[in-house]
Design a binder for these strands. Structure first.
Lengths: 175, 175
DNA sequence: CTCGCTTATGCAACTTGTTGCACAAGCGAG
DNA sequence: CTCGCTTGTGCAACAAGTTGCATAAGCGAG
C-alpha cells in the first residue's frame, strides 16, 4: 500500500492533479518510490472511493480545468497510522547484479559497456540530487530536516552504486 | 523476466529441485533478487514449457524423489543473450524513506524505534555477508571474481543502509 | 502403528506494477 | 481555419510478486 501513502503525503504537501503528482514523483518523492501516471490515476480513484481524499472544488470550473485533489481528515489519520506501523525493508531487486552472476556462467561479453552505461546514469542522478541539495538545503540549516534526510538517502544510494560499479568496471575485461 | 534468468543461472551453477532453488535464493543469488518458492515453481513450469530446462532424469526413481531440473542448450543461449542485452536500473523502492517524508507532514512518533529496528536488521545482514566473504573468498584470491564482486555489492549496499539509518537516528527526536 | 511435525510441491486469488492504447482539449504554424 | 503537436486523463490487458491454503510423503516419538 506504499503508493497510496506516497500520494497522500504528496497531496498533503500540496493539493495537485494526477499529472502534477506524476511529475512530482519523477522528482523529490521519487527518491524512494517511483510511479507512472497510470498507477497514480488508479490509486487516486481508490483513495477517493475510500473517502481519504476528494476533488478540490474550484471557484470557476472553466473548460479544460484539471482535477485537483486534497486530503480529507480520514486520509491524514490513515497516513499518520501508517507512519507508526512497523514494516520490513523490501529486499533489493537489481538485474545488473544478477547479470554479473550469470556472466560467471556464460561469459562477460558486452557487460563492461553496460556497466559503463549504468555508471553514467548513476553519476547523472547523483549530480541532480546534489544540485537539489545545494538549492533547497543551504548550509545555514534552513529547509525541512526530514526532507533533507530523505534526499541524503538518495545521494548516498547513488554514491553506493557509483562506488560498486567502479569496482565492477575495474574487474571486468575488455574495458 | 529477471526471475527466469536468475533461475537459469542458479540451475547452471547446479541442477536443483524447486525447494533447493528457493533456499539458494535466500542466500547467495538473493543479494540482488529474492523470490518465494511459489514464484520459483511457477517460473520453473514456464521455463520447462518453453523448452529452456528439463527435468533431470534420475536413475532409480524412488518414491519421494524430488524433481530436479537442468538447463538445456536453448536455456543457456537465452541466458547468454540476456547478459548481453541492455537494461536500465530499476528505481529504488523503499517504504521507510517514504515514511520519513510522510512524517514531515504528520509527526515522527514511533519512527525512531522503527529506524533502530531497521538498523539492527541491516547490521545482521551485513554480518552474514561478511561471514560469507571470509569463508568463500579468502585473501589469496581464490574463488570466482564475479561472484565475489556481486557479494561485495551486497556488502556495500548494507553499508549504505547502515550509514544512512545512523544519520536518520541522530536526527530524529525521542531516541 | 499412528499422530503430529517437517519437507516438498503446487493451485488460486489477490495486489502491485507495466505497457499500449484511446480520447479530448489547447496551442501554434502554415 | 485546420492540421499536427503537446498536455492531461483514463481504460484494458498483461506481467510480476504476494498470500493463503491444499496436498502428499517421510520421519520420529510415544
Amino acid at each position: 500500500m506504499s503508493l497510496q501513502h506516497a500520494i497522500l503525503t504528496a497531496l498533503l504537501e500540496k493539493p495537485s492533479s494526477g499529472l502534477e503528482l506524476a511529475r512530482r514523483f519523477d522528482r523529490s518523492i521519487g527518491y524512494f518510490w517511483s510511479a507512472t501516471h497510470q498507477q497514480i490515476y488508479r490509486e487516486l480513484g481508490k483513495l477517493e472511493s475510500a473517502g481519504l481524499i476528494r476533488e478540490l472544488p474550484v471557484s470557476q470550473p472553466a473548460r479544460g480545468q484539471r482535477k485537483a485533489y486534497e486530503v480529507l481528515p480520514a486520509g491524514r489519520d490513515e497516513l499518520a497510522a501508517w507512519v507508526r506501523r512497523s514494516e520490513d525493508p523490501r529486499p533489493l531487486r537489481d538485474p545488473l547484479g544478477l547479470r554479473l552472476r550469470a556472466a560467471a556462467m556464460v561469459g562477460t561479453e558486452g557487460l563492461a559497456a553496460e556497466v559503463q552505461r549504468h555508471l553514467a546514469l548513476h553519476r547523472k542522478q547523483l549530480a541532480e540530487f546534489e544540485a537539489i541539495e545545494a538549492r533547497d538545503f543551504p548550509a545555514d540549516g534552513s529547509g525541512d530536516a526530514l526532507q533533507h534526510l530523505v534526499l541524503r538517502g538518495g545521494i548516498e544510494m547513488e554514491t553506493f552504486w557509483i562506488k560498486w560499479l567502479t569496482e565492477a568496471a575495474e574487474r571486468l575485461p575488455e574495458g
